[in-house]
Computed example of a mutant assay.
Amino acid sequence: MNAYRGRFAPTPSGPLHFGSLVAALASFLDARHARGHWALRIEDIDPPRCPPGAADTILRQLEAFGLHWDGRVRYQQDRGQAYAEALKRLEARGLAYPCSCSRKQWREHPVYPGWCRDGLEEPGKPVAWRLRSDLGPRPIRWQDRLFGLQTLDPAALGDVVLKRKDDLWAYQLAVVVDDADQGITEVVRGADLLDNTPWQRQLQHALGLPEPRYLHLPLILGDDGQKLSKQNLAPPLPATEPEARPLLHRALVALDQAPPAELASAPATEQLAWAIAHWDPTRLLAELERPLRDTAV
């Protein structure tokens, strides 16, 4: 294997669906085509959203589609100390601050106005911890592998939460700390996370961490034009290999990889061998001009 290190990092709030499969498959193919490492990280930092057994279901689904990961599965629930150390470093630099405000209080504003930056508005109340988005490099510029040059000002997006009032760690801090700790060099994920990148770049800069490259994928939409998601009751993926075969082929079609029609009933290993050899993310450029739809799910 070479220096390429990618990952798939689902939240176990339920089983994977077709949209999840497309994201996982693109990440897997990108890593395997580069003869790189592909890690699996279960982002279970929000236990109330993660029903028992959901993480194990995800593992079985990935195995059914032949998407086998390298090394041990990482679980974010085990990583609290690392996140706490990162937050302490940010606080020491004046880049993170406690906030007692509720969403109800600032609902008239498009983003959180930073009222607690210079001290708690309501001392004695539970606090979240936020990132000072107005400090550090801005605007943030990066070259997305599909969407091209991106320029976004984190301050226009607001001071993102790093630790919640209920003492649970928030996504932005956890993902940055873990990507660095796992040596991730390439992030392949859905375009719904494109505007998360400026906060993550700010955190990487503030903590002195490497900056991976990003490839954001066009989203899979249902017939109603909405992103396929668990919230929209997207059907779960099967957890057996024979049932997975036609869905795997459809996922390759959705990624515009033009797999041969005769592969639709082939074993997952055979489909993946073809897809790894022929993986071409530049084919996704055509999808930027039309939404990806999957009318069969």
Rank of each mutant, 00 (worst) to 15 (best):
Leu29Val: 06
Asn196Ser: 15
Ala92Asn: 14
Pro212Glu: 07
Gln81Thr: 14
Val22Lys: 06
Pro113Ala: 01
Glu211Lys: 14
Leu237His: 06
Leu21Met: 09
Arg141Lys: 15
Pro235Gly: 03
Gly66Glu: 06
Pro98Tyr: 02
His205Cys: 13
Thr57His: 10
Ala191Phe: 08
Gly225Gln: 04
Trp274Lys: 03
Asp30Cys: 07
Ala54Asp: 10
Pro259Val: 05
Arg290Ala: 15
Phe8Met: 07
Gly190Ala: 07
Leu16Met: 05
Arg138Pro: 10
Val297His: 12
Cys101Phe: 05
Pro48Ile: 08
Thr240Gln: 13
Asn196Tyr: 12
Glu85Ala: 14
Ala286Met: 05
Leu207Pro: 03
Glu91Thr: 13
Ser20His: 15
Ala31Asp: 05
Gln182Trp: 07
Arg141Asp: 14
Gly6Val: 02
Gly222Met: 00
Glu85Met: 10
Arg7Lys: 10
Ala155Lys: 06
Ala277Lys: 05
Asp153Ala: 13
Gly119Thr: 01
Ile58Tyr: 04
Pro236His: 05
Leu131His: 00
Gly183Trp: 06
Leu149Glu: 15
Gln150Cys: 11
Leu149Thr: 15
Ala275Thr: 01
Arg72Gln: 15
Val177Phe: 10
Asp44Gln: 01
Leu173Asn: 08
Cys50His: 08
Gln143Val: 11
Gly19His: 04
Ala273Met: 03
Gln143Phe: 09
Trp38Tyr: 09
Arg5Tyr: 05
Met1Pro: 14
Pro236Lys: 07
Leu168Cys: 00
Pro110Cys: 02
Arg49Val: 03
Gln200Asn: 02
Phe65Gly: 02
Gly124Ser: 10
Phe147Val: 04
Pro238Arg: 01
Leu173Trp: 02
Leu135Val: 04
Ser100Tyr: 06
Leu40Tyr: 09
Leu237Met: 09
Thr269Phe: 12
Glu211Ile: 09
Ala286Asn: 14
Gln257Leu: 02
Ala251Trp: 03
Tyr171His: 08
Glu287Ile: 01
Asn232Gln: 15
Leu135Ala: 13
Ala254Gly: 00
Ser265Pro: 13
Gln204Phe: 01
Asn196Pro: 10
Val160Ser: 08
His109Lys: 14
Cys101Ile: 00
Gln143Trp: 12
Thr269Pro: 08
Trp129Asn: 04
Arg145Ser: 13
Ala239Glu: 12
Asp223Glu: 15
Leu59Pro: 09
Ala86Leu: 08
Arg145Tyr: 09
Cys50Ile: 02
Gly119Arg: 03
His17Ile: 03
Ala96Thr: 01
Lys163Ala: 09
Ala266Gly: 11
Gly6Arg: 03
Pro137Cys: 07
Glu211Asn: 13
Leu285Ser: 14
Cys50Glu: 11
Val160Asn: 05
Trp169Lys: 05
Lys227Asp: 00
Phe28Leu: 12
Pro260His: 00
Leu252Ser: 02
Asp159Phe: 03
Arg74Gln: 12
